[in-house]
């Protein structure tokens, strides 16, 4: 479904601080699979994730989604592609403080001009499914780590994207919550979604629910299947 071809990413290109974070990545990511990028800190996992998800552009190389070239798209169309295809659960969740859980969940739907009531209904249904409907009116700064993550998952799914992107989703969770997360993700796969995440958490690599682990080191792949 997603095809990464010879992708390189150099930060601060042409300057003394130039740093090559990705160095010739070739990768096919299967539809409806759970793919995990593993590797030590600084190996380029987050960078690869953001290029795949149309969050950033590669310095060279191509990214195709369902055969559509997205790596050369101008910003406006890249946003459209990102909006249509991906939902995000960030490492630090990136919920907007001061707003309620429901308001946060509705954010991706806000500029789409959809029916507000229908949006809210969908959001509540998803919060219900994730077991935090009771917190819908609560401000996000009062949530625990696990609740905040589930609010972030609900937000990522509000526009019904086919692909869920999660960066180090279990980094701040205890073992039980990490397993809860994997259960939620399996549920999403059962809904037909594709899940791509990064993790340096061995509990994740070893989990049954994971279809494929992609190892990275210094911006390159050293693949091993799960």
């Amino acid at each position: 479904m997603i095809s990464v071809q010879s992708v390189c990413k150099t930060y601060n290109e042409g300057r003394p601080s130039a740093l090559t974070a990705l160095d010739g990545i070739d990768l096919e990511i299967a539809r409806n699979a759970l793919t995990v990028f593993k590797g030590p800190s600084g190996s380029g996992k987050t960078t690869l994730l953001s290029i795949i998800s149309c969050m950033a552009r590669p310095t060279s190389g191509r990214v195709l989604i369902d055969g559509r070239m997205v790596s050369g798209l101008p910003e406006r169309f890249l946003t459209l592609e990102r909006r249509r295809t991906f939902g995000f659960v960030f490492q630090r969740f990136n919920l907007i403080r001061g707003l309620s859980v429901l308001e946060n969940v509705l954010l991706p739907a806000t500029p789409l001009g959809g029916e507000r009531r229908a949006d809210a209904k969908r959001a509540l249904a998803r919060l219900e499914m994730l077991g935090i409907a009771g917190k819908a009116g609560e401000r996000v700064e009062f949530l625990s780590g696990g609740e905040a993550q589930r609010a972030a998952i609900a937000r990522a799914l509000i526009n019904d994207p086919p692909v869920l992107i999660a960066d180090e989703p279990t980094a701040n969770l205890d073992t039980e919550l990490a397993h809860r997360f994997l259960d939620i993700v399996s549920g999403l796969r059962a809904e037909g979604r594709t899940v791509i995440m990064t993790s340096h958490d061995p509990r994740i690599w070893a989990a049954d629910q994971v279809d494929r682990v992609v190892s990275m080191r210094d911006g390159r792949l050293e693949e091993n299947e799960a």
């Binding site: 946003t79 909006r83 960030f90 990136n94 907007i96 954010l107 991706p108 806000t110 500029p111 937000r155």
Partner: peptide, 18 residues
Amino acid sequence: REIGILKAIGWDTGDVIA
């Protein structure tokens, strides 16, 4: 940061400016 978050979750430049 807030603008960054909004953009990351799918708002485009025009949405943020509006």
